[in-house]
Design a binder for these strands. Structure first.
Length: 255
DNA sequence: ATGGTTGCTTAGCAA
């Protein structure tokens, strides 16, 4: 099985990049984030033409997550289902070939000290409670998506400069570690130890050509699934060329 | 250097 995740930064703006990428890479599953469109305007037909069925949790203008799959999906679940009134579409999951696959878009947090950063912290804590309440770390499960947090110094081009930002603040890193310590493995770090691999580069200041990025998109898996993972990588090529997303896809394969 | 870029929606917000 080949699993991919990609923050597309508007599916309508990115359809001409995402569809050819799917055709070239043919993952069994693609988790997407930041659709920025209501469900009735999602381009289901173009995915279906390549053999993918897609389920979405969407809203107008902001956020929005989806899972496109070649294989049948069952028990589709939307949101954190914790009774909290929350209009933001940031989580969808489905069971595919016996694996619970989650597509998540963790809040960016805007700036440390703001209400949005507080919402980010609370959302990550709610995700931990969702895992504790509904899932079993002994079962195969993958959480894929834009976590908006880089785990370690080696995942950030300039850790000192980014320490005060929402994507690498110590509180955000601790919250990410709490999610991981529920019983998840960072699949990228199973296969690569080196610094300097990034999944996101700001559109501004020529960040991509200058190599100023962060590794904030992840595929986390429970132990029984991680044991089957024989590769995990970031497709930097997809960040190049005309009208790219500011994120690159992350992929993992399983035997 | 308080800049710079992109997308949605239409001047301001979010990333």
């Amino acid at each position: 099985m080949k699993l991919a995740t990609w923050n597309v930064n508007s599916i309508r703006a990115r359809t001409e990049r995402v569809i050819p990428w799917l055709e070239a890479n043919r993952p069994d599953v693609l988790c997407m984030q930041e659709l920025k469109v209501e469900e009735d305007k999602f381009p289901f037909d173009q995915f279906r033409a390549l053999g993918y069925e897609t389920v979405v949790a969407a809203q107008k203008t902001y956020n929005g997550v989806a899972i496109a799959s070649l294989k049948p999906m069952s028990d589709v679940r939307l949101g954190l289902s914790d009774g909290v009134e929350d209009p933001q579409a940031r989580l969808i999951s489905a069971v595919i070939e016996g694996v619970r696959i989650m597509s998540v878009y963790v809040p960016n947090g805007q700036a440390v000290g703001t209400d949005k950063f507080e919402y980010k912290m609370q959302w990550m804590d709610r995700l931990v409670r969702n895992l504790e309440a509904h899932y079993d770390r002994a079962e195969p499960l993958a959480i894929c998506g834009d976590f908006n947090v880089a785990p370690e110094e080696k995942d950030v081009h300039d850790p000192v400069a980014w320490a005060q930002e929402t994507l690498f603040h110590i509180d955000a890193r601790k919250a990410l570690e709490k999610i991981r310590s529920w019983g998840l493995v960072d699949l990228f770090r199973l296969h690569h130890w080196e610094a300097g691999f990034y999944s996101w580069w700001d559109y501004q200041m020529l960040s991509f050509p200058k190599g100023r990025g962060l590794r904030i998109d992840h595929i986390f898996a429970t132990e029984p699934l991680a044991r089957r993972c024989d590769g995990c990588w970031i497709d930097r090529e997809a960040r190049k060329g005309q009208k790219p997303s500011d994120h690159a896809p992350v992929l993992a394969t399983f035997g």
